[in-house]
Design a protein around this nucleic acid. Structure first.
Length: 421
RNA sequence: GGAGAGGUGUCUGAGUGGUUUAAAGAGCACGCUUGGAAAGCGUGUGUGUGCUUAACGGUAUACCGAGGGUUCGAAUCCCUCCCUCUCCGCCA
């Protein structure tokens, strides 16, 4: 959520930023709510001040044995007026908040301006494309042949997009999760968490999934819960409504499954594991001061890249331009893996700096050097998401006989297994 | 799911309708004291919002788990909900 004072004082900047984002929001409507809200507060506070004074004098009158009935009758009227104005204030307050919740974050100054994904610059790349001297098979063929997963039976029990991993495929999921968690906790300084896999509406609003993206979320209406689309939700919101007493930055990592309805993307890249409703992911989340967030964002991105380097996978980092930037993010790098069999790039990580946007929504603060309660900056990124990672390993490491070589760092996690046959 | 007990500031903890403007203590910060420290003494010590200020700040209002209600006036009384603890039930 944007700071209403900032919006008030920099309306033109905000409007220009929204144009760069292709965001259709009515800033003037927000400003009108803001004006009405402040006028109402001034008025009702004055009345309340008067009521407090007179109420106290009534107390004194009773003590002195005087009859306060005449004044009380008068005060009843004032009470009704205050109640009416409080109600009006509640309404305009709710409208203002609702409007603000639908306004996306301001892009960082360093975020490149652009229309859509074709304007996203490539920041860097690592490794080289794998050249195979035979006709490579897509992962869905390899996986069925090696019995790594059984997508038909997954569909039978839950629906398409709910993959069922079997045997070595299931073990590969577990091995990758553990490898990544070990890397982030032992070498990158993150503290591991095991979080709830469902969150309430407040948490989903805190990180920006609600209210605007309700249709992307699964929900359990009977209990008011939502299966998490990313560990970002429980991890970020665990500090909601707190003034953090500990040193910043705070670094957390967690494995969770992620649940996404993928509404509106039906039929797009859905073959095999490319786009699924449930997938495993190791996430990284940081809470930083405003001064260090840019630097910590770069470091977090490198932490994600390190996973891919250790696995020996060719990747590139692109930066999202203003037109392609996620709703809550100020700046974002996507990491994409190359797959030779399909001759294309697959997004496996999205590393974003949210500045104080989520912190303001979730009300997460710390004490700055002056001792003043200040909103933290939140940063998070996948480190990394599994299905497309598995795709890249399978498709790039395949042999002519249909077997798949496992990256050396995974051998210990696979019980010594070096090859999927 | 049932019964009971609770939820007050950084912490402990008092407070059952009106100088509570949330007592007191601890902690913390600053000052005095000291050769230095401790002790002692003194002062200060939350958050949101509105108005105001160049700024320090000032001022008003709200906040005692959350949301409603009663009342001239609510931490205090009433209603709904949430959470924690104990016991029972169910259960991996």
């Amino acid at each position: 959520m944007l700071d209403i004072r900032f919006v008030r004082e920099n309306a033109d900047t905000v409007k220009a930023a929204m144009v760069n984002r292709n965001a259709d929001v009515d800033i003037d409507a927000v400003l009108a709510f803001d004006r009405r809200r402040r006028a109402t507060i001034s008025e009702v506070d004055e009345l309340k001040a008067e009521r407090n004074t007179i109420s106290k004098s009534i107390g004194l009158m009773i003590k002195e044995g005087k009859d306060p009935e005449a004044i009380k009758a008068q005060m009843r009227e004032m009470g009704e007026k205050i109640a009416a104005m409080d109600e009006e204030l509640r309404e305009v307050d709710a409208k203002l908040r609702e409007a603000l919740l639908y306004i996306p974050n301001l892009p960082a100054e360093t975020t490149p301006v652009g229309q859509d994904e074709t304007d996203n610059p490539v920041v860097r790349s690592w490794g080289e494309k794998v050249e195979l001297d035979f006709e490579p098979k897509p992962h869905w063929d390899l996986g069925e042949a090696l019995k790594l997963f059984d997508l038909e039976r997954g569909a039978k029990i839950a629906g398409s997009g709910f993959p069922l991993f079997t045997g070595k495929g299931a073990r590969l999921e577990r091995a990758l999760i553990q490898f990544m968690l070990d890397l982030h906790t032992e070498e990158h300084g993150y503290t591991e968490l095991a979080t709830p896999f469902m969150c309430n509406e407040t948490a989903m609003t805190g990180t920006g999934q609600l209210p605007k993206f309700a249709e992307d979320m699964y929900s359990v209406p009977l209990d008011g819960l939502y299966p998490i689309p990313t560990a970002e939700v429980p991890i970020t919101n665990m500090y909601g409504n707190e003034i953090l007493g500990q040193e910043l930055p705070i670094l957390h990592t967690a494995y969770t499954p992620c649940f996404r309805r993928e509404a509106g993307s039906a039929g797009k890249d859905t073959r095999g594991l490319q786009r699924v409703h449930q997938f495993d992911k190791v996430e990284m989340v940081k809470f930083t001061t405003p001064e260090t967030s840019a630097e910590e964002h770069e470091k977090l991105t490198l932490d994600a890249e390190r996973v891919l380097q250790k696995l020996g996978l060719h990747y590139r980092v692109i930066e999202l331009c203003t037109g392609d930037l996620g709703f809550s993010a100020a700046k974002c790098y996507d990491i994409e893996l190359w797959t030779s069999a399909q001759d294309k790039w697959l997004e496996v990580s999205s590393c974003s700096n949210f500045s104080d946007y989520q912190a303001r929504r979730a009300n997460i603060r710390y004490r700055n050097e002056d001792g003043k309660a200040t909103f933290v900056h939140t940063i998070n990124g996948s480190g990394v998401a599994l299905p497309r990672l598995v795709i890249a390993i399978m498709e790039n490491n395949q042999n002519a006989d249909g077997s798949i070589d496992l990256p050396e760092v995974l051998w210990p996690y696979m019980g010594g297994l070096e090859k999927l046959t």
